[in-house]
Design a binder for these strands. Structure first.
Length: 523
RNA sequence: GCCCCCAUCGUCUAGUGGCCUAGGAUACCGGCUUUUCAUGCCGGCGACAGGGGUUCGAGUCCCCUUGGGGGUGCCA
């Protein structure tokens, strides 16, 4: 019989805490883990770390799952998928943690501690005043189990602390190399809270073992946690997975990208920056460009290539090309990536993404969140008044746009009621009123032509406009611009032939008429 | 304060001792294309944090300084 043990087997995980939407930095962590798994043909596990009941946010698991799906990152085991190592919610694994807590207690590698949070806070404040950092002093003698139970009966909530070994610990890191930390840097950490829940450190170590995680790829903010985890693994007889600590992503200002940036910007009256994956979705980005962009934040292929689909990333990715330096999140460059991707994907894909964008935006309740200025009304209107064929044409006509809101800005007027068109005074002055109303004169000529024109295709209309130019011995601008203003209220629109074809003959004529009449009413 | 990590154009980065008068992308500036807004194309500006070593030779190796970041929770 052959051994079926695969020595190369790879299992990685992403373990978010359900406190809101998926953060863009978290998205990069997922992506890299996902890539490691897919590259190796291993498993990608999703685990929900909901051990802090005070920070739990309703619906956030669903939100995170949605964000992952939108990005195209699937998981082999986890919520809604199941798997052989479940449950995948830590709050449903309490018995498991208790069992290992017992083991550590029995083997004298952990003990009950009776200080209250208030006492610890006071001690910390005192240590800070003294200019140093607080180190928890292991009690001597240690509280007995009987004492802990008595305290609990008394209404106290004893915690369990892990005895950190008195020896240096070396973290072998696939990204940073070896990092050795001296024992003085650690005190005995709490592994079970007063409410009986495990702390992050403990649950994480137990689950990584039980879920057979082979590689842990996480943010650099976890580097100093890793020695603690290694010490616990040793005490419990667990294996130590391979570790890799990735650089952190910052704002252009150098501050850490955080959800609070949004509130700050709103307070200052500025548009809030996109921070969570969902922000980018609502801002009209393609998941392709987000994935591509964050992949290049800390990883590169070693050559000049910059465009990568998920499949191409899977092919090209390798851990040894992950960098060590923190990166700033350059939204300008992301925008450029998005422009490229919008031009690159198939019309079908672009239509699907645009429809998703409109749907997501239309579903936002303005009172939900004092977020950015989302074109909610416009999105609803477009959804109601168009179909797939129309949207495909609109997207084609707007080719070259950066993000989906640009499409709405450029072609949104198509979906307005004719009498809802608002004329931009500047545009009116520049292209219609100027030169003794030459623009209006042109509109009068065009109106007659439009009424008798039969072939209402973009090409034919384009030809009609060009022909008018020749007749009047003038440039395109003198003909196209007045039409633009009449039909859209401003000077921005797709090519003039496409614009009119998309709008239709009836509406074109109605809008031109209305524009001329408005002028007569207020000369 | 203590511990740890990091350091190339504004930003993301290539660079693994001679291919480097440092390459690409983005941003910015200029030009071309053009019926508006974009796109596209061409060109330009722009960096090895500083100081010591090692070496025939250093962006690349070592040390110090400086700067940035992380940790120091009954958060994850």
């Amino acid at each position: 019989m052959m051994s079926t043990t695969n020595t190369n087997f790879v299992r990685v995980r992403f373990a978010p805490s359900p406190t809101g939407y998926l953060h863009i930095g978290g998205a990069r962590t997922v992506l890299f883990n996902w890539l490691v798994a897919r590259k190796a043909g291993g498993a990608f596990v999703l685990r929900i770390e909901d051990t802090d009941r005070t920070r739990h946010v309703e619906d956030s698991v669903q939100k995170i799952l949605n964000d992952l799906r939108w990005l195209g990152l699937d998981w082999d085991e986890g919520p809604e998928t199941g798997g052989g190592c479940g449950p995948y919610f830590q709050s449903e694994r309490l018995d498991l943690y208790h069992k290992y807590i017992e083991q550590l207690l029995k083997s004298n590698r952990a003990y009950y501690a009776l200080e209250t949070p208030q006492m610890l806070t006071t001690m910390r404040e005192q240590a800070e005043k003294a200019g140093g950092s607080f180190r928890y002093q292991r009690p001597d003698p240690l509280p007995t189990i009987a004492q802990a139970e008595a305290a609990r009966a008394d209404g106290a909530s004893p915690v369990v602390r892990f005895k950190m070994p008195d020896q240096a610990i070396t973290v072998v890191d696939d990204i940073l190399g070896s990092v050795t930390i001296e024992p003085e840097q650690f005190d005995d950490l709490v592994i079970q809270k007063g409410d009986g829940f495990p702390t992050y450190h403990f649950a994480c170590v137990v689950d990584d073992e039980l879920m057979q995680i082979t590689h842990v790829l996480r943010g650099q903010e976890h580097l100093m946690n890793t020695p603690k985890h290694i010490a616990m693994q040793e005490a419990l007889g667990f294996r130590t997975p391979r570790y890799g600590h990735m650089p952190v992503i910052f704002n252009m200002s150098g501050t850490k990208m955080s959800k609070r940036d949004k509130e700050k910007a709103i307070k200052k009256g500025e548009p809030p920056p996109e921070i969570d994956v969902n922000d980018f979705r609502l801002a009209g980005y393609l998941p392709e460009s987000i994935v591509n962009f964050i992949a290049l934040l800390g990883w590169n292929p070693g050559d000049d290539r910059e465009q990568f689909s998920l499949a191409e990333l899977t092919e090209a990715f390798s851990m040894d090309r992950v960098g060590k330096t923190n990166a700033k999140f350059d939204r300008d460059k992301l925008r450029s990536f998005n422009t490229d991707w919008c031009a690159r994907v198939t019309p079908e894909r672009l239509l699907a993404a645009f429809t998703d964008y409109l749907t997501q935006v239309a579903a936002v309740t303005p009172t939900d969140d004092p977020g950015p200025d989302l074109p909610i009304a416009a999105a609803k209107r477009v959804l109601e008044r168009s179909d797939s064929a129309m949207l495909t044409s609109v997207l084609g006509a707007c080719a070259g746009f950066h993000t989906f809101p640009d499409v709405l800005k450029k072609a949104g007027f198509l979906f307005l009621d004719d009498d809802a068109i608002e004329f931009d005074p500047k545009a009116v002055k520049k292209v219609l009123t100027k030169n003794n109303g030459a623009g209006y004169a042109m509109l009068n000529v065009l109106q007659a032509k439009f009424e008798s024109h039969e072939n209402w295709s973009a090409e034919a209309l384009e030809a009609l406009v060009k022909q008018t130019c020749e007749e009047k011995d003038t440039k395109m601008g003198a003909v196209a611009q007045p039409i633009r203003v009449a039909v859209s209220g401003g000077t921005i629109s797709p090519g003039i032939g496409e614009t009119l074809a998309l709008l239709g003959q009836e509406k074109t004529i109605a809008r031109v008429k209305r524009c001329i009449e408005k002028h007569k009413a207020t000369p």
